[in-house]
Amino acid sequence: MKVAIETDKEQELEVEDGTTIEALLARLGINRETVAVSLNGALCTEEEPLRPGDRLRVIKVVTGG
């Protein structure tokens, strides 16, 4: 199935049914401790499974300095 993901760029990814946000972040090399995730416009936990057509936004919340 395909899901749309927005990090610092927007892309469409092919993922297996039942893939969780957590697993997708790990696949992309993103540490979940450093981001908040919004699924179809609402903040959620990383355990949520993705469904076809979902739109995921990954918001970087850990800053440098």
């Binding site: 401790e33 908040a36 903040l43 918001i59 919340v61 850990v62 800053t63």
Partner: peptide
């Protein structure tokens, strides 16, 4: 934690 502060501000 920094992540909780961010989520609080966003929510």
């Amino acid at each position: 934690p920094e992540k909780e502060v961010a989520i609080y501000a966003l929510l």
